[in-house]
Simulated scan of single mutants.
Amino acid sequence: MKKLLLLTIILVLVFTMGACSQKNKSNTPENSVEAFLDSYKNGDIIKSMEYVENKTSTEIEQIKKNFIEDKDSKSSQAFLKTFSKIEYKIINSDVKKDFAIINTEITAPNLSKIIGQLIEEISSDNMSTDSIQSREDTLEKMADMDMIIGDKLLEKINSDNIPMVTKTINIKLVKKNGSWLIKTNNEFKRAITGNLVNTIYFD
């Protein structure tokens, strides 16, 4: 569970913390939104950060560790698989000088619902285990909880009937040094994490 929460917290923080922005090649706000979401879908989280206004080197390093160095872990694989299932459609744009609002429809796996189901299943399994195993055996099993959670989460994400959630949001961007950068907020984070922000109370 700690591994799952760590990955979630990192994703939320990297869209929240403030710092200097990197220059990117997009010269329209629509291009920046598409570039961010396409990179995010492809699992290139580092690349997607080039299109975000607020980020810190610390969060970038944490993402590198969890999604590049530790990419073979089941939890990381599950999140990357989740990102790949995101679909989006730009509906309209409102651009005024150095500020823009891009109305976008985003459909993503409903991670809030999926992880809620996962927690219920694991809690039920643990109660059942306590009734048939010794306390020592139960503690030993709990030591492998991160692996169990990763396996179950990946199984749910790979399911054909994975629950999805669709949100239509206004993505705000600001033009800095010739580049359009996304100004993230809770609405944006909910959309790209399938309401997971609500689940862990980062509102």
Rank of each mutant, 00 (worst) to 15 (best):
A191V: 08
L11K: 11
S159H: 04
L37N: 12
I63F: 05
Y201D: 12
N170Q: 06
I46S: 09
L196S: 00
N24S: 01
E187G: 06
S159N: 11
S48V: 02
S179Y: 03
M147W: 15
N103S: 04
V95Y: 09
K3L: 01
S131L: 14
T16Y: 07
E155K: 13
L7I: 02
L37F: 09
V174H: 12
K167W: 04
Y40R: 10
Y88L: 03
I192R: 00
D130P: 09
Y201K: 15
E187H: 04
S21F: 00
K65M: 02
E69D: 05
K141M: 14
E87R: 07
K23L: 04
L11Q: 03
L6K: 12
S75E: 13
V12L: 13
I114Y: 07
N27R: 14
S75D: 15
K176W: 09
K65E: 07
Q77E: 07
S39T: 10
I114C: 10
K23D: 10
D44M: 08
K25L: 09
S131Q: 12
S48Y: 07
N161W: 04
N161I: 00
I149Q: 08
K97Y: 12
N161Y: 10
E140C: 01
D125E: 14
K85M: 12
F67Q: 12
K2M: 09
T16G: 09
L173F: 00
I91W: 05
F15Q: 14
I90E: 00
C20Y: 15
T8C: 03
D203R: 08
K71N: 11
V197I: 15
N185T: 10
S26L: 09
V52I: 09
N110D: 13
S112H: 09
V52N: 06
K152W: 12
F83R: 10
F36R: 04
S73T: 11
S123L: 09
S26Q: 00
E105C: 11
S32K: 01
T56I: 02
Y201T: 13
G178K: 01
Y201E: 14
K183S: 05
N158G: 12
C20D: 14
I45D: 06
F79D: 01
S73W: 06
Y88F: 03
T184C: 12
Q77D: 08
I148M: 06
K74V: 14
Q62S: 15
N103V: 06
A78V: 02
T8F: 04
I60V: 05
I182Q: 11
I86K: 03
N195T: 03
K97C: 08
S26V: 10
K2H: 10
I102D: 04
E50K: 14
E30V: 14
K74I: 01
S131E: 13
N158M: 07
K189L: 14
V197L: 15
V52T: 02
E30F: 04
D146H: 13
I9F: 10
N126Y: 15
Y88V: 04
I106V: 06
S93W: 06
L181K: 05
C20K: 15
D94T: 08
E155D: 10
I192S: 01
K47Q: 13
L139H: 13
A100F: 03
K81H: 00
S112I: 00
S112T: 10
P29F: 02
I169C: 06
K176G: 06
A35P: 11
I91V: 11
P29T: 07
I149H: 06
T184S: 12
